[in-house]
Design a protein around this nucleic acid. Structure first.
Length: 802
DNA sequence: AGCACGCCGACT
DNA sequence: GTCGGCGTGCTC
């Protein structure tokens, strides 16, 4: 057992394998799989993960491990295994998968520096750069313009040498503590001797005579209303001493959360939770889909299930989408489980994320609530995994490794033999279909806990507005309702669904949208060629000047923004105070919370914003929700567009009248007859599901098939297209007859950073060897990838097709 | 990826 | 001669 298998931090295809290293004597006791090490790799040093230990190697020129970075493994054996699976499942590199499972600060930083070895004079430029120092960072040499061969020469003469450094990014937060350094009676003696003018010193000393424990410096200064100088004097007199302690950055003040108790469950909730509790008791893995309408008390089910898990001495992972948007959620978990909760989300600093991660790693918490990557929490005895708002696409990572947290959750659920709960008011079709097939266990919560009806939804046909001479973005009905709401002193939320604007073409006269005749997907307007194109097949046609359906010349692509809406709104209803929330107004850190707090404090009457206001917000005084353009998403060139529209409308409707006041919703649309809009207004998920499934079946989209997307990019247009073509051809030779390879077609964004992009889509039902086939086909291009800057990426479960 | 090596053309 | 550009091959 003196050889370690190491995955090194070199993200390249030929390096995607373990490399063997000898374990030097001094590390043999401590080194375990899952630890990070520094190893020599060629002429340099790199970080690596130990994946295993063996006694022999097929390689005979082994080098020694240079250093061990961790005292305990950062990856448990389960996570090591999970990482390998993840890399293979997503066709990523092992190192990429491992890095994705850990906080940023555990990544290595690489530096080179030059060390002077002799007193012999160096070339002039180099000599002045050293300026008496023994070490010079390599970056200084690069930026100073010293000739490379001078350095080379100095190295050859043995006057200097290069060091390859691997530095950890870890920064620890230290806090200063003060404690007495002498016995109490010596302090008392010193107290008597102190001059009466040293008032603060006396006070401090008296404090420590009373309580000789360590006290945090900042707290001490605050308590006595003094500064560091008084303390320093006592330190100089050797009466007190300082010590530094490492603390965790805790982004939440646990005391600030009011503690809550388990609520009494309704009959429906009881029915839903019982089988989950049973699996917890019996250590049994099942996936539960909890389909519960807004306000049906899904969270309370999560909380009570977690309670059971904690009582058993096990741990819980809760995933929520973009948690920074839902301080309410944090409050509920911290309120129930106090300091046993770690919170992981994107708004935390790297240091804060690391500290939360360590609290998990060191078993100081039993519950983690976090965004996507929290699924990799290094717990070893997981009793439940919960994914709230299961349909959210932020659970899919859009860069390598392109994983879906749901898949990882289920894999970990199997590893730990524990239940996985998927919760949503609008489950993804994939999940609901699996529940229908019995793969997942379905529980439905159709009633709200307060027995209130869902707010009434009024659909406004914007074509009628246009015919009546109203060309503004606000229908007469919406204007009226906003004014009424205003006069009652209640608040309004207006959603501008901006995504997809200016890409699709719609007739403002009749609502007609150009779609691909082969794909039933809206065509995308390409400005440079003035063409409409389909992103699923190669279909294209010129941009029409007249609507093919009603011959109106009002056919055009859409473009508008929150800013313009805000202007129009203040003109229309001058007395309303409007708060705008979009990427521009929330870019600054904390701006988000500030805006929401302002609105909660009723400093504004109308909150106008994009998607970000649709999710998880809960304001008791909001009684009106307006959706300005319900169909803007509907015509995105994405087979999920109807599903996304339904989900968004359902979600945003849930924002109205959540409390005592009754709410209402106004949905403005050019296509009121579309089933996603009509059924969302009736809160009829079941019917929507049936309808959408028929569409998916007809056009062979998920969940009836699986997708894999291969994207090729190259600075040369022809190379990109040709390579994609060859990949498509290559794949045809490997696949079953009912599998389809579509394309190549230009990617939705055909050129990014001066690289042309082509893609192939694979639609398949049963293709057990697809990953191997894809790998085999693209391996032929490895050389070109390396030497010709060709890029090939594979997404085994694409979500974002646009 | 990132580094060294080695081959070749250009230039003081 | 020698400087420096880039193609090639290796990394336990």
């Amino acid at each position: 057992m003196m050889i370690a298998n190491v995955i090194v931090d070199v993200p390249a295809i030929p390096i995607n394998q373990t490399f063997d290293y000898r374990i030097p004597e001094r590390f043999q006791e401590v080194l375990q799989p899952g630890m990070r090490v520094i190893v020599p790799f060629g002429p340099r040093k790199v970080m690596g993960f130990v994946t295993g230990k063996t006694s022999k190697s097929s390689y005979d020129k082994l080098k020694d491990i240079a250093d061990v970075l961790d005292l305990t493994p950062v990856l448990t054996s389960e996570l090591l295994d999970l990482g390998r699976w993840l890399a293979e499942d997503t066709l990523s590199l092992y190192i990429t998968a491992f890095q994705a499972m850990l906080p940023q600060v555990l990544k290595a930083n690489y530096k080179k520096e030059l060390e002077r070895l002799s007193e012999a004079p160096l070339p002039e430029e180099l000599e002045s750069l050293f300026a008496g120092r023994d070490f010079v960072p390599y970056v200084e040499i690069e930026t100073s313009g010293v000739h490379y061969n001078q350095v080379q020469k100095a190295i050859q003469d043995g006057d200097v040498t290069v060091h390859y450094l691997v530095k950890s990014r870890v920064t620890r937060k230290l806090v200063t503590y003060i404690k007495p350094s002498r016995d109490v009676h010596l302090l008392e003696e010193a107290y008597r001797d102190l001059s009466n003018r040293a008032k603060k010193q006396k006070e401090l000393l008296a404090y420590f005579i009373e309580r000789p424990d360590e006290t945090e410096l900042s707290a001490l200064l605050k308590k006595f209303g003094t500064t560091r100088s008084a303390v320093n004097s006592l330190i100089d007199k050797q009466l007190l001493e300082t010590s530094q302690k490492e603390i965790y950055r805790n982004p939440y003040d646990d005391q600030a959360f009011e503690q809550t108790e388990a609520l009494k469950l309704t009959e429906q909730q009881e029915l839903a939770i019982e089988p989950i509790k049973q699996d917890i008791r019996e250590n049994h893995h099942n996936v539960f889909l909890v389909h519960g309408v807004t306000g049906s008390g899904k969270t309370e089910i999560y909380l009570q299930a977690i309670q059971d898990v904690i009582a058993k001495g096990q741990e819980a992972i809760v995933l929520v989408p973009e948690i920074s948007l839902t301080p309410q959620m944090v409050r509920r978990f911290k309120g129930r489980f106090g300091s046993s909760v770690a919170v992981m989300h994107s708004a935390l600093s790297n240091g804060e994320k690391y500290d939360e991660w360590r609290r998990i790693h060191q078993k100081e918490v039993q519950v983690v609530v976090g965004a996507r990557s929290a699924i990799f929490a290094p717990f070893e005895n997981i009793g439940i995994i919960i994914i709230d708002e299961e349909h959210e696409n932020s659970y899919k990572q859009e860069d390598q490794p392109r994983y879906h947290a749901r898949d990882v959750a289920i894999r970990r659920g199997q590893n730990h033999q524990c239940p996985v709960i998927l919760g949503s008011a609008t489950p993804s079709l994939e999940s609901y279909a699996r529940a229908q097939k019995g793969v997942y266990k379905l529980s439905t919560l159709s009633k709200r806990t307060n027995d209130k009806a869902m707010p009434h939804v009024e659909i406004v046909d914007m074509r009628n507005e246009l015919h009546a001479g109203n060309r503004s973005m606000f229908s007469r009905s919406l204007k009226e309702k906003v004014e009424q709401c205003l006069s009652r002193g209640e608040q309004t939320v207006l959603l501008l669904n901006r995504r997809g604007y200016s890409t699709f073409v719609m007739c403002r006269e009749c609502g007609h949208v150009k779609e691909c005749p082969h794909c039933d997907i809206a065509l995308t307007f390409h400005k440079n060629s003035n063409q409409l194109k389909c992103h699923y097949c190669a279909y294209e046609e010129p941009m029409p000047t007249y609507c093919p359906s009603c011959s109106s010349d009002l056919i055009r692509f859409f473009g508008t923004g929150t800013q313009r809406i805000e202007e129009a709104l203040t003109k229309l209803i001058p007395e309303a105070r409007v708060l705008r929330m979009d990427v521009d107004t929330t870019r600054r850190k904390g701006a988000h919370e500030k805006l929401l707090n302002q609105f909660a404090n009723k400093e504004a009457d109308i909150l106008l914003g994009t998607q970000m206001i649709a999710k998880g917000l809960d304001f008791e005084n909001v009684t009106l929700v307006g959706v300005l353009t319900a169909d803007s998403m509907l015509h995105l060139p994405d087979f999920r567009s109807a599903e996304k529209t339904f989900q968004l409308l359902t979600q945003v409707s849930g924002r109205a009248g959540r409390h005592d006041l009754p709410g209402e919703v106004i949905v403005q649309t050019y296509t009121p007859e579309h089933y996603s809009i009509e059924l969302a207004s009736q809160y009829d998920y079941e019917k929507f599901y049936q309808n959408e499934m028929r569409v998916r079946k007809k056009f062979q989209y998920p969940p009836f098939v699986f997708l894999a997307l291969i994207t090729v990019s190259h600075q040369n247009h022809v190379t990109a297209a040709q390579t994609a073509q060859r990949i498509a051809k290559g794949l045809w030779n490997h696949i079953q007859t009912e599998t389809v390879v579509l394309g190549p077609t230009p990617s939705p964004i055909p050129r990014i950073k001066d690289r042309y992009r082509y893609q192939c889509m694979v639609k398949y039902k049963q293709e057990p060897n697809l990953r191997a086939s894809i790998q085999q086909v693209i391996r032929q291009f490895d050389d070109q990838v390396r030497k010709d800057d060709l890029q090939i990426t594979v997404d085994m479960q694409p979500y974002q097709l646009i």
